[in-house]
C-alpha cells in the first residue's frame, strides 16, 4: 500500500483537506463550509477526503496543518503558516506565479515569490476586516443580497459609487444611507467590490507588484472581486482550478517533503497519525456527515 500525506487548512470559515500519495498525485481535495472555526468542519472535510481517496486512515503517515486553527489540531505533525502554504500551493498550481493574492474570510494576504518560487516578501491585513471576505459578507447582508450572488449583481452596474469607509461597520452605515438615498443595489455593490479592490491594491503596494498574479482563497470565487481587482492592478488575474484549496495543497506538499526526507529513517510513531485521526473522526459526541463539496482533485506537478 502506498503511503499518503495530508494537508489541512483550518480556516476561519472553512476547512480544507488535500491528500497526496507518495508520488505526489492528488487523491482527494475537499472543502467544508462550517461557519466559524470548528472541529466539526474539520471532521467533515476529513471524512469527505478519505471517502474520495478511498484509502484507510492508516495510509496517511504525515499531516501538516495550516490556517488560523492550525495549532488546534493534534493530528498534525507540524504546523506551517497559511502564508508559506498558500505560496507553495499557488506555485504548484501555477508554476510561473510571482505574486499570490489570497483573500479569505478573516484575512487577506499578498505574497511575493522570488524566481525560485520561495516567499520573498509578504503583507497581511491587520486585525480589521477591511479588504477581507468578512467585509463582503457584512455588506451583502446590509444590501440584502446573498453572498454568492453579490458578485454577479455588482457586475450588472454601469457605474459605481465610492464607499470611503474601510471599517466594515462604518461602511455598513454608509451603505444604508446610500440605500436610503435610493441608489441602486448593483451600483452600491460595485462600490463595495471596488473598495475591497483598492484595499488589496494597498497590500500589493507593500510588497510590490510582480506579474503573473495568482489569486486564491474564497474571494477568488467572486467574479466582481476578481474583475475590480484586475482592473485596479491593470492585469489579468490567474484563478487556478483549486484556488480555494491552495493552502491545504501547500501543507500537503510540505508533508510530502517531510515524508521524503524522513523516508530513510522510518519514524517509530507513524502509527500515531492513524490513532489521532481515528480519535478525531470517531468522536462519539458528534456525528458529522462528510462534506458536501468535494473538489475535483487538481492536477499539478509536485
Amino acid at each position: 500500500m502506498k503511503s499518503h500525506v495530508l494537508g489541512i487548512d483550518f480556516g476561519s470559515t472553512t476547512a480544507k483537506v488535500v491528500i497526496l500519495d507518495e508520488d505526489g498525485n492528488t487523491v482527494a481535495s475537499c472543502v467544508s463550509q462550517k461557519g466559524a472555526v470548528s472541529d466539526e468542519g474539520v471532521r467533515a472535510a476529513l471524512r469527505g477526503a478519505f471517502e474520495q481517496a478511498g484509502i484507510n486512515l492508516s495510509a496517511v503517515v504525515r499531516v501538516v496543518s495550516t490556517g488560523y486553527g492550525r495549532r488546534m489540531l493534534d493530528i498534525a505533525d507540524r504546523t506551517i503558516t497559511e502564508i508559506t502554504c498558500h505560496a507553495r500551493g499557488a506555485r504548484a498550481l501555477v508554476p510561473e506565479a510571482r505574486l499570490v493574492i489570497d483573500i479569505g474570510g478573516q484575512d487577506s494576504k499578498v505574497i511575493a515569490l522570488d524566481r525560485n518560487g520561495l516567499v520573498a516578501r509578504f503583507a497581511m491585513n491587520d486585525r480589521c476586516a477591511a479588504g477581507t471576505g468578512k467585509f463582503l459578507e457584512v455588506l451583502a447582508r446590509a444590501v440584502n443580497v446573498e453572498l454568492d450572488d453579490m458578485g454577479a449583481e455588482a457586475l450588472k452596474a454601469e457605474e459605481t459609487v465610492a464607499i470611503t469607509s474601510m471599517c466594515a461597520t462604518f461602511a455598513e452605515t454608509e451603505v444604508i444611507s446610500l440605500l436610503a438615498e435610493g441608489r441602486p443595489k448593483q451600483v452600491i455593490l460595485a462600490g463595495v467590490h471596488q473598495s475591497i479592490a483598492s484595499r488589496t491594491v494597498g497590500l500589493v503596494g507593500r510588497v510590490g507588484k510582480h506579474d503573473p498574479i495568482v489569486m486564491t482563497g474564497g474571494v477568488a470565487q467572486n467574479i466582481a472581486a476578481v474583475h475590480f481587482l484586475g482592473k485596479a492592478l491593470e492585469t489579468r488575474l490567474i484563478i487556478p482550478t483549486g484556488a480555494q484549496i491552495a493552502g491545504a495543497l501547500g501543507a500537503a506538499l510540505f508533508a510530502l517533503d517531510d515524508l521524503r526526507s524522513a523516508s530513510k529513517v522510518k519514524r517509530d510513531d507513524d502509527d500515531a497519525v492513524e490513532g489521532k485521526l481515528e480519535q478525531l473522526l470517531a468522536d462519539p459526541q458528534r456525528c458529522t456527515p462528510a462534506c458536501g463539496k468535494k473538489e475535483t482533485p487538481v492536477t499539478f506537478k509536485a
Binding site: 488560523y68 506551517i80 503558516t81 497559511e82 502564508i83 508559506t84 484575512d107 525560485n116 520561495l118 516567499v119 520573498a120 509578504f122 497581511m124 491587520d126 486585525r127
Partner: peptide, 24 residues
C-alpha cells in the same frame, strides 16, 4: 491590544521565510 493570532501568523511566516531562504 494587538490581535495576537494575526501577529503570530506574521512572525511565524517571517521565520519560515528566513529559514527557507537560508536553506536555499
Amino acid at each position: 491590544g494587538v490581535a495576537m493570532e494575526n501577529v503570530r501568523t506574521k512572525v511565524e511566516s517571517f521565520v519560515e521565510m528566513i529559514k527557507v531562504q537560508r536553506a536555499a
